[in-house]
Design a protein around this nucleic acid. Structure first.
Ligand SMILES: [Mn+2]
Ligand SMILES: [Mn+2]
Ligand SMILES: [Mn+2]
Ligand SMILES: [Mn+2]
Lengths: 218, 218
DNA sequence: ATCAAATTTTAGATTAGCCTAAATTATTTT
DNA sequence: AAAATAATTTAGGCTAATCTAAAATTTGAT
């Protein structure tokens, strides 16, 4: 139906729209897809012809209902596969993304239904990202960045912003994972770095790290 | 490394070589790939340049060691995935092929290792076809077609020649499957059709069906 | 050994996805 | 409200994989 490339563009547009803006720019897509703006324009014309995006030249793009459904189905597949790899195949959370990028394009409704069942209908992937249901319904997360909390707040880690292996491995090495209780012991005024307590141990993390850790108040 | 298309050509050449000939023809590849001979010639030039096939124009092709290794790795992945779908995801043996055609191109050594381990290192796929090991070693099967046996021979069904859903569904409906004991009660001289006993029930099968059932003598 | 038929290759196009360079349109600054 | 700058699109090309039609080569039948 749609090529891998088309699927990847649609997903990129969806992700860019997630940050709140009404439309996304050609340049933003180009950067995310590691291509040139001219290539993006070519693809936008094609996707518009297929009624997957709303596009008028120079005006930015958004997804149509049809486009959004496709995006959500790809994201669903990506996250289910990531979950599968971690739960059943001994992958670490920093190893799953690249394989899931390939698996998300496999076409088979039965496969995805069985995958979902096999994993017992998980609500979130190994990074805490919510998994759209079979109908494309996605629960909005209410997590906030750890950097938004204050001294003596006690939070539960629910996700990450940065998904890079480097960041995930840093968290592993330090001993942070989803579900951990994090108590803020001190916020350094100067650089917004934090002193926190996790598993009864004290850690110092930069504001950069704090920004990339998602939590809910306990 | 190699595109999906290149992988599919290599696999096609491998399968055609399996029938015993030293080389395969451009036309044979074209028919198997549902393309035209001219397209095949283009691809053969490319694969020859990559040293995956031995090719001189008008002389037919064979695989180099490198090409054969790639073919076996794709076949290994295909058969492991088919096994996975049947064993873990409730697929029937007539439903797995098309999905495995997609999954066989996923690139991840760890994924295949874990898949193999998860399935407890199976020796054959749901159709009885042997699975190459991680080194690309493939055990030759000694099964023969049921049509080669005679009255009173007792055999065990070990595989199928035709993999089409139609044929597999016919076997399902009739109640034949891998591992079944088949006793030949009569061979009709006129059309080579057979009267056989499976699970204490008597069946009449055409010579065409018999040719497509692989067995070993009990 | 010659000629006809079949096979295979070459020549020349097409489409998807990508590129650079140039032109166009929008936005920001003065 | 111009002018300068930034963003976007168009123009023109490239490669991979495909096609049709024509040419070249091999095979096989007299
Ligand atoms: Mn991911
Ligand atoms: Mn994820
Ligand atoms: Mn198969
Ligand atoms: Mn099989």
């Amino acid at each position: 139906m749609n090529s891998f490339t088309e699927e990847n563009y649609i997903k990129a547009i969806y992700k860019l729209l997630e940050s709140g803006d009404e439309t996304v720019s050609t340049n933003a897509i180009a950067e995310r897809m590691h291509t040139r703006a001219a290539s993006v324009t070519d693809m936008l014309k094609k996707l518009a012809l297929k009624k997957l995006i709303n596009y008028q030249r120079y005006q930015g793009v958004s997804l149509t209902g049809k486009g959004e459904k496709i995006a959500l189905s790809i994201i669903r597949k990506h996250r289910l596969w990531e979950m599968f790899l971690v739960e059943k195949f001994n992958f670490k959370w920093d190893e799953v993304h690249d394989v899931a990028e390939q698996l998300e394009h496999i076409q088979s409704d039965k496969l995805i239904e069985e995958l979902d069942k096999f994993l017992n209908y998980p609500k979130a992937d190994p990074h805490g990202d919510p998994i759209p249901d079979a109908k494309g319904k996605l629960l909005a997360r209410k997590s906030k960045s750890l950097s938004q909390f204050s001294v003596n707040d006690v939070c539960i880690m629910t996700g990450v912003v940065d998904h890079s292996p480097a960041f995930l491995q840093y968290l592993d090495k330090t001993g942070f994972g989803l579900g951990n209780e994090i108590k803020i012991r001190e916020v350094v005024e100067f650089d917004k770095s934090l002193q926190i307590v996790v598993n009864k141990k004290t850690f110092f993390i930069s504001s950069d790290v704090a920004k990339n850790i998602l939590v809910i108040l306990k």
